[in-house]
Amino acid sequence: MQAEVLVEPSLRAPEGRAWPRDLLKRVGLTLVVLGALWAFWEGYRALWMATGWTRPFVVDNLTMPPAADIVSRLWEPLAVGQPPLIRDLLDKSAFTMREALAGFILGALIGFAIGVVLHHSRLLRRGFLPYVVASQTVPILAIAPMVVIWLGGKGLPVWMPVAVIAAYLTFFPVTINTIRGLDAAEPRALELMRSYAASSWDVLWKVKFPASLPYVFAALKISATASVVGAIIGELPSSIQDGLGGAILNFNQYYSLDPAALWATNLVAAALGIAFFGAVVLAERLVVRAAPENVA
């Protein structure tokens, strides 16, 4: 026992020193990728403008503004005497984030609940799952106005219909992967629980749910970015000007005068989606590492 106690800290020490190095590598790789994207953007512009190629589209300062102009536009004011564009976009991002987060949580809960029900009933799965799949074939732009009309006059907060639209895009991946994850539980573990006369509830939460975590988190990564997209799209028919959807719509109307503003807004929207994705990745590392060894 003493030998084990003495060896264990020495084994953990390199792991403790490894995470800062791993973080630096990830940051360095991110900067390299961003630099490569910047170089590709500028190289593409320079080549197409120098040769006059028009396929797949004409390249000029209107269709592809310089990357430096897009980034610098974030720090320029919307108009004389107003704060920088980045401050306004951050405020709008916070509003859209609330809608997307509410939709993400709502959609994840609904998707997980549907997955559990369909996992336990083969009859419901055969009869109901095709309609779950068919729900995703309807364009979200066709559903969004109907959701706004249905919920707009119910006394709910103005952002609630948008959250429901975000939930609509979120629940499907969670439903499918929940079913797949629950079905993937170790048969020997299920037999052991049956030998102990465990209830269906105990089997679900002590065996099947831990086994489904990798599948569920894979779906949540997809749903995280989809919730941001759903929130932005849902703001358009809702006439909400406080979010990124309203900013995109406004800057789209004046694109010919200020194309860099729309591209800058797209950058902020992409950053919001990446932040949602990163939060799910962090939660996955914390939760799955704490799961049983055969699951993690």
Results as ranks from 00 to 15, higher is better:
His120Gly: 15
Ala18Glu: 10
Lys154Cys: 00
Val207Met: 05
Ser238Glu: 08
Trp150Thr: 14
Ala13Met: 10
Ile105His: 01
Glu8Trp: 08
Leu29Cys: 04
Val281Pro: 08
Ala260Trp: 02
Val158His: 07
Pro9His: 03
Lys25Glu: 09
Pro66Gln: 12
Gln82Phe: 13
Leu182Gln: 04
Lys221Arg: 14
Thr170Arg: 01
Leu213Asp: 04
Val5Ala: 15
Leu244Cys: 09
Asp202Asn: 10
Phe217Gln: 05
Gln2Val: 13
Gln241Ile: 10
Arg194Glu: 12
Phe104Val: 01
Phe277Asn: 13
Ala189Lys: 12
Asp183Pro: 02
Leu106Tyr: 11
Asn177Trp: 10
Leu124Pro: 00
Asn252Thr: 15
Phe251Ala: 01
Ser72Glu: 14
Glu8Leu: 15
Glu76Gln: 13
Ala79Met: 13
Leu106Glu: 06
Ala283Gly: 05
Glu186His: 06
Arg87Met: 15
Gly28Ser: 04
Pro9Lys: 03
Gln2Trp: 00
Tyr44Thr: 08
Leu286Phe: 12
Leu78Cys: 06
Pro130His: 06
Phe209Arg: 02
Arg17Phe: 13
Arg194Gln: 10
Ala211Thr: 04
Gly81His: 09
Gly230Leu: 07
Val147Ala: 06
Ser72Met: 15
Ala247Thr: 01
Glu15Gln: 11
Val132Asp: 11
Leu89Ala: 01
Gly181Ser: 08
Leu124Asn: 01
Val287Ser: 05
Val162Gln: 01
Ala46Ser: 04
Arg98Thr: 14
Ala224Thr: 02
Pro14Asp: 09
Leu262Val: 10
Ala269Tyr: 06
Val158Arg: 14
Val147Asn: 04
Glu42Asn: 03
Tyr215Glu: 12
Asp258Cys: 12
Ala167Ser: 02
Ala142Gly: 07
Pro84His: 11
Ala260Gly: 03
Ser93Cys: 11
Thr54Arg: 07
Lys92Pro: 06
Val147Ile: 15
Asp69Arg: 13
Ala226His: 00
Met160Cys: 11
Leu129Val: 02
Gly278Thr: 09
Ala211Met: 01
Ala270Pro: 00
Arg285Tyr: 02
Leu236Phe: 11
Ile149Gly: 14
Val33Leu: 03
Ser200Met: 00
Ser200Val: 04
Val174Ile: 10
Val288Pro: 00
Thr96Gln: 09
Pro14Gly: 04
Val268Ile: 15
Leu182Gly: 02
Pro292Lys: 07
Val27Leu: 09
Tyr168Ser: 07
Trp48Val: 15
Val162Ile: 04
Leu257Asn: 02
Val228Gln: 03
Glu235Pro: 05
Ser212Lys: 06
Leu156Thr: 09
Leu192Val: 11
Leu262Ile: 11
Arg21Gln: 13
Glu42Val: 01
Tyr44Pro: 05
Leu204Lys: 03
Val27Pro: 00
Trp75Gly: 00
Gly152Tyr: 13
Pro9Asn: 03
Arg180Ser: 09
Ala279Met: 10
Asp91Ala: 05
Trp263Ala: 14
Thr265Cys: 11
Ser199Glu: 12
Leu141Gln: 07
Leu31Ile: 08
Ser238Phe: 04
Arg122Cys: 11
Pro83Arg: 01
